[in-house]
Amino acid sequence: MSTTHQIQTPLNSEVIASLHAGDMVLLSGDVYTARDVAHRRLYESLERGEKLPIDLKTAIVFYAAPSPTPPGRVIGSIGPTTSYRMDFFTPKLIENGLRGMIGKGNRSPEVLTATNKYGAVYFGAIGGIAALTAQCIKKVELVAYEDLGPEAIRKITMENMPLIVVHDARGNDLYAIARGQWCVKH
């Protein structure tokens, strides 16, 4: 039976250690949106030894690019993009302090190794429910790479954002566990 955790950012190592693949999470606090090009830029900055435009220490990134904000709203529709495209850049970000990722879909063995080694967690959000997810966002602030438009890095403040632990810090993978459990064997 899975547990539901109410979590407030920043993530600390005790909280991360208490999470198990399959646990439900209601996340509140600040996370950064970043996806394809933003990841490349962060990675290249780290390679060159430059200061990053965001503090990665204990940070959580949400692989997301919202639709434009209509008048009178906090944000447009928002939801996870597929995570594997960020896999190449992720271990380096984790080495440099990243502790949480929110996305959807499978990750590479290298990402799993890094989450395991450094004690980071990969949360799954449900894709394609972006109007509903927008209701959990209370504040948005553009922080870097404005030229990327929807792909720019934004600091977003969440309140009780429903997530599920996909990879815990012990190397368990919910997708593999769930598939094994529900696959019809002949």
């Binding site: 639709s67 447009g76 529709s77 939801g79 394609g128 429910i129 509903l132």
Partner: peptide, 19 residues
């Protein structure tokens, strides 16, 4: 959630998915 989202999107004229 998917069904609820479709309803919210339609009523609030928000995109069903950000993509």
């Amino acid at each position: 959630k998917i069904i609820e989202n479709a309803d919210v999107a339609c009523r609030s004229k928000m995109p069903i998915c950000q993509d």
